[in-house]
Structure formats: structure tokens, C-alpha cells
């Protein structure tokens, strides 16, 4: 076990833990955002550079600070390491610039994008972005392509996190898509219009941090915050069958994996559960899914949030501070 300090909070973790996972142990604001790292995918991370942190003390043995900001998702903790995340202006500045870089070629088409409301890039921009872009040049654009019967790829929105490539590589039998070309011309593609046909291919939609890969059975059906997320399960021979249903009244609009507080699915689900079982009788519904009240998705679910807000509200003396009111 090693002890590390992140933003002044000490935490004890096993050796060979990354800084990001150590921060996730603490939770809250200490956790750096991650657009490409996915704990269930081996080899992911290091690419988006949003999780950069400052190491102000390398370890107890060698207290020198690291010369550059490091990617917290791929840097291992050392005993006595001191890490600064949101408390370092340098880190906040670097994160701001990464957001700016990611948005250069990202179309700001959130109003027509199915991912809006549950988009990692949208959340990141909200937290760290500038309100105005300084980019005046032409943006790169691509045609939408269908990869498989139920999945659409809109490369224009892609931020090249490589998550879908790792997913296809590691949880399906045969990968038929990958990254073609290089630099800002690189694109996710299947090379000569191959089709992704695999029982678990639908998971590329869940891992996509933006709206580049979308579920064709759900496209333009409903804004995500108007639908009710429910936990449900069924007996499935291929996967665990534990899913989240996104419902409107009694209709099931979409089926996804259950995502945890870091936006990662708990268990990958099969295509049959995801695309074909769209009737209420297919599922045993467990109850409403907990959604953080910071999320836009929770805005219509007063039964959850309103009570919580009332409970957290302490009575305040509003007439006490007369001086400032008069001024």
C-alpha cells in the first residue's frame, strides 16, 4: 500500500494504481476528467490529455517535482506522491486549452445530437471551456456512415479517443474497424465498407464519449432528459442481462448498459438486449435508476431531486444581514 496526497486529501491505495484511479477512490472534485481512459479497456488512456495533473512531489524518496504535467490515467502513483489537480492553476489552464483543441474540429451541433445531455465533451466544456471560440478556420467534416445494421458513425463529431477500437478489439471476436490516416485527417473507419457484425458490437455506442457512434434504433426519438431511466434485467444467454432502460410512458425507447458515476458501463451487454428487446414484457423492471442531480438528465425527475433538495436545505435567516441589504 502506498500513500498519496491529491489536492491536499490523503488516500491509501495499492501499488501500481494510476493517479486517476487513486483520485477516483476519493471522488468528488478531485477526480480529473477522462475522455479516452476506460477502466475496463486495457491500453486505453493517455490520448485526450484532459486528465493532466501536476506532480509537485515525485515520491517520498525522490521529492523532486515532475517537470511536465502528466497524464493521470497512465502514470502510476509512488509512495508519498503529492498531486495537484484542480488546485493548480497550471492544470486548470492546460485543461482549458485541451478543451479548446477538442472543440476545434467538433461541430457544435448539440441541439440535434442524440448524445446531448449525456455527453462527456459537453460536460467538460461546461466545466472548463471558453464561451467563445478563437478558431476561425475551416473545420474537418465527414459523411455519416453506417457500420452495421444498428450503429451509425458520424466521424465529424469524433474526438479520436480510440475507445471503440479497444472495445472491438477486446470484447468482440474480430475487429474490423480502426483508425485510418493520421493527424487531424485520421478517422475511424472499417476500411472498404466493412460491417461490424458481432454480438457485442453495440457496446461501442456506450463507450463513445461523444455522439460519434449512435444507436440507430434510438436516433431522434427523444431528448435524453425527457426519458425515464429504469434499472431492469432479463435472463440472457449471452450477457448478464442487467441494463438501463430509457422509457417514455410505458414504451422502451433505448436500452443501454448501466453507467457508473464516472460514465463507464458496469457490464457490457449484448446486441440482442440492446437492439431487439424493446417491449416492456421482455424485462423485469427493478425501479428508477439513480441519476446524479447535477446531470441534465435528472431535471424532469422531481420525485428524486426535489426531496433531496428540500432535505439538504437548511432554514436560513434572510433578514439578518440588514447592512448589506440596505447597501
Amino acid at each position: 500500500m502506498v500513500k498519496v496526497t491529491i489536492d491536499g486529501i490523503e488516500v491509501e491505495v495499492e501499488e501500481n494504481t494510476t493517479i486517476l484511479n487513486a483520485a477516483r477512490r476519493i471522488g468528488g472534485d478531485v477526480v480529473p476528467p477522462a475522455m479516452c481512459y476506460y477502466s475496463k479497456l486495457k491500453g486505453s488512456g493517455g490520448k485526450c490529455r484532459t486528465c493532466l495533473v501536476k506532480v509537485s512531489q515525485g515520491s517520498a524518496k525522490d521529492p523532486r517535482p515532475m517537470p511536465k504535467l502528466v497524464a493521470s490515467c497512465s502514470t502510476m502513483v509512488q509512495d508519498g506522491m503529492v498531486i495537484l489537480n484542480s488546485t493548480s492553476p497550471e492544470v486548470v489552464d492546460a485543461r482549458k486549452s485541451v478543451v479548446e483543441f477538442l472543440l476545434i474540429n467538433h461541430p457544435l451541433d448539440c441541439p440535434v445530437c442524440d448524445q446531448a445531455g449525456e455527453c462527456d465533451l459537453q460536460n467538460l466544456t461546461y466545466a472548463h471551456g471558453l464561451s467563445k471560440s478563437r478558431y476561425e478556420e475551416e473545420r474537418r467534416t465527414f459523411e455519416k456512415i453506417d457500420i452495421g445494421e444498428h450503429i451509425q458513425l458520424h466521424m465529424t463529431r469524433c474526438i479520436l479517443c480510440y475507445r471503440c477500437v479497444y472495445t472491438a478489439d477486446q470484447i468482440t471476436d474480430k475487429r474490423v474497424h480502426g483508425v485510418l490516416n493520421r493527424g487531424d485527417a485520421s478517422e475511424i473507419g472499417t476500411y472498404i465498407k466493412n460491417v461490424i457484425e458481432n454480438d457485442f458490437s453495440g457496446n461501442v455506442i456506450d463507450v463513445c464519449p461523444v455522439g460519434a457512434l449512435t444507436d440507430k434504433t434510438f436516433r431522434f426519438k427523444q431528448r435524453v432528459w425527457f426519458s425515464k431511466p429504469m434499472d431492469a434485467h432479463r435472463n440472457c444467454s449471452k450477457c448478464s442481462g442487467k441494463v438501463a432502460l430509457w422509457m417514455k410512458g410505458n414504451d422502451i425507447l433505448r436500452v443501454t448498459g448501466r453507467k457508473n458515476s464516472f460514465g463507464e458501463v458496469e457490464e457490457f451487454i449484448c446486441n440482442e438486449c440492446r437492439f431487439e428487446k424493446k417491449k416492456t414484457e421482455d424485462w423485469t423492471i427493478e425501479g428508477p435508476r439513480h441519476i446524479s442531480n447535477h446531470s441534465v438528465i435528472s431535471q424532469n425527475h422531481y420525485e428524486n431531486t426535489f426531496k433531496a433538495k428540500l432535505a439538504s436545505r437548511q432554514p436560513k435567516e434572510i433578514y439578518g444581514n440588514k447592512d448589506s441589504a440596505e447597501k
Binding site: L102, I104, L160, D184
Partner: peptide, 25 residues
């Protein structure tokens, strides 16, 4: 450098293209 960036990490992928376009202008 814009042409040769591998496109793996975002600052280099997007930044090199941005600089090239501004300089071209």
C-alpha cells in the same frame, strides 16, 4: 508537422493544424 502528426493525442492533432492554417492565412 501538421502533415506528420500521428493524431493520437489532442493538443498535437488539433494544434498543429490550427497553427498551420493561421500561418497560411
Amino acid at each position: 508537422y501538421h502533415h506528420e502528426s500521428c493524431g493520437q493525442c489532442s493538443p498535437c492533432r488539433e494544434g498543429t493544424g490550427w497553427m498551420e492554417k493561421v500561418l497560411h492565412r
